[in-house]
Design a binder for these strands. Structure first.
Lengths: 194, 194
DNA sequence: CTCAGGTGTTATCGCCGTTAACATCGGCGG
DNA sequence: CCGCCGATGTTAACGGCGATAACACCTGAG
């Protein structure tokens, strides 16, 4: 009886996150509400609470989904730069982060939310670990200075994130965006190699 | 009859922004609602709409207030570094920005909102103009390269903002925060002088 | 003094998250 | 095969939210 609408949805949890992702792409954070997501799944709002302890947990799950999507983008783009020096790959990661933020600004607004719940699967693609792996290549063999690693990671992440949000909110012109991305990432590269 | 509560408030517009600032300090963005602000002023929610076309405009006014507060902090701190080289003053500005974000995280969440309404008074303290003035000192006399200026401004602002939000959301330990601020700003300084 | 407009009020609407009480489905022990 | 019970859905309701309409009052210009 797969043709008839069943009373039990079967995989509502995943369906809710899927619908949340679609709503986030379309309407941004304001579209990601318990009632709207439930309606998009053809289900009552109260049904959500059988699968998530609160609406915030559902939104956090959608945000985690968005982070995974971005991370996949980053890994894909990075795979085309395999073998290049670490500074080049780091730049690729930064450009990928910024490109995603500008291409999917509404989805990105979820990405940059503080993570309330830690990701349930620690082994899936993760931007921070990726950055760390590349930054580690700057360290001399056998003696990693954790503080230097942390500084480089933070510079890379902070400048990419800050640049992304400032461009998204205050620089509409695509050409100006490109020039600023190039100019800033050049300077960040200098700071990273110092 | 100043002692008796008057029917007409008299300066409700300013009082609403004042109350909004207090609520923002106390409860963050969630506390800044039309109804709560109106209640804090002893006034009905509908009265707000006599002074602001929408609740978002009121919140934007509170956000602008928060930016002015932060800018005053920055100018005050900067006045103690008068005469020092531009790179030192720029660092002072960055440290001030980050310190404010970490000292008043809830108020800062308003600061970093996209500005819907342009500030009504263009002559009051403004962080972007301040950064620009200092960055201009890097340019050789008589020939300012606007693109280089924009890149330096953007690097300064993006790294400070990104660092602030990442530290606020993900690095609770004060000592770790200090080390990261110092380490990252060192590298940003290198990038700025390049 | 009058009256028009600025500034307040209450009542109401629709949406939001959340909970309680109830209904149905589906599988497992008898 | 039956019955039951837990998982998963439903509807109804509460309080808070932004916003608007209709009404009341206060104040100052003529």
């Amino acid at each position: 009886m797969s043709g008839r609408a069943r009373y039990h949805h079967g995989a509502l949890s995943d369906a809710l996150v899927d619908a949340g992702e679609a709503l986030a792409r379309a309407d941004g954070l304001d579209g990601v509400t318990v009632r709207r997501i439930a309606a998009a799944c053809g289900v009552s709002a109260a049904a959500v609470y059988r699968h998530f302890p609160s609406g915030d947990h559902l939104i956090a799950a959608v945000a985690q989904r968005a982070r995974e999507i971005m991370a996949r983008d980053m890994f894909a783009r990075l795979s085309t730069a395999a073998g290049r020096p670490p500074i080049d790959r780091l730049r690729e990661v930064g450009e990928s982060y910024i490109a995603f933020a500008l291409a999917e600004p509404r989805l990105f607004s979820l990405v940059s939310m503080p993570m309330t719940t830690p990701p349930d699967r620690a082994d899936d693609p993760n931007a921070a670990d990726l950055v760390r792996d590349i930054v580690l290549e700057f360290e001399p063999a056998g003696e990693v200075d954790e503080q230097r690693v942390a500084s480089r990671m933070m510079l890379a992440q902070a400048s990419a994130h800050g640049l992304a949000v400032i461009l998204r909110d205050f620089v509409p012109d695509p050409q100006a965006r490109e020039q600023l991305i190039a100019g800033v990432l050049d300077r960040v590269g200098v700071g990273l190699e110092a």
